[in-house]
Amino acid sequence: MIIAVVDGMGGGIGSQIVSSLRDELPSYVEIYALGTNSIATSAMMKSHANKGATGENAICVSSKKANVIIGPMSIVIPNSMMGEVTCRMSEAISDSEALKILLPLIPEDFELVGLENKPLILLIKDAVKLMKKEFNIK
């Protein structure tokens, strides 16, 4: 099983996701750190992802291989993260056959209604729990 964690900017959200996944999942699960920039990739690698890659092409290629893609909702919004998420990246992630688990963290000019406002750590726990349930991982 391959889980792709996608993040940009400083990689803080992605590194927290990788840490939680590493703590909760068996060692045979591969975690890919896919950063829109090298700082984000590096931060996620420090949280013990198995592999890391940076940039548009790496995200596009790895999205095809992943069983699950996890990251902030911004990863499917073109030009988000101050332009770090390209149209090609968001399209590749959206078109991937992988299960997408998106945290409701979005650009300032977007609003989502009907969602409970939770701290990031609880959102990550919910995401990990959902993924474990979906793939029957104990």
Rank of each mutant, 00 (worst) to 15 (best):
M1W: 00
I3F: 06
I3N: 02
G8P: 09
M9Q: 12
I13Q: 05
L21P: 10
R22A: 04
P26W: 00
P26F: 03
P26M: 03
S27P: 10
V29L: 11
V29Q: 00
I31T: 03
Y32V: 00
G35K: 06
N37S: 08
S38V: 11
A40E: 01
A40V: 00
T41D: 03
S42T: 06
M44V: 03
M45W: 04
K46W: 04
K46L: 12
S47R: 05
A49G: 00
G55I: 01
G55F: 01
G55L: 10
G55E: 11
E56G: 04
N57D: 15
C60L: 10
V61R: 11
A66P: 07
V68A: 14
I70P: 04
M73Q: 02
M73L: 12
V76Y: 08
V76Q: 03
M81Y: 08
T86I: 04
R88K: 13
M89T: 00
E97W: 14
E97V: 15
K100S: 03
V113H: 13
E116S: 06
K118G: 07
P119V: 04
I121E: 12
L123C: 00
I124C: 04
I124L: 01
K125L: 06
D126Y: 03
D126A: 09
V128A: 11
K138T: 11
